[in-house]
Amino acid sequence: MKLSDIMGAAGLASWAEIGLVVSFITFAAIVLYVFVIRSRASYEDARHLPLDDDPEIPS
């Protein structure tokens, strides 16, 4: 018996649909976390990271 026979009999046709649902739940959870649960203030430091390094260009 080949691996493909076993997998073919395993009824994995709904595999992708499960994936879709799992992905959607993950997506919803991330949105919920970022926008509802965590406060705006916690992002302020991170936002300014690129700006607190270099000297200005010579002119």
Partner: peptide, 10 residues
């Protein structure tokens, strides 16, 4: 999720 079914479902 995407590749396994294509490869294994006969």
């Amino acid at each position: 999720f995407e590749i396994i079914p294509t490869f294994l479902i006969k």
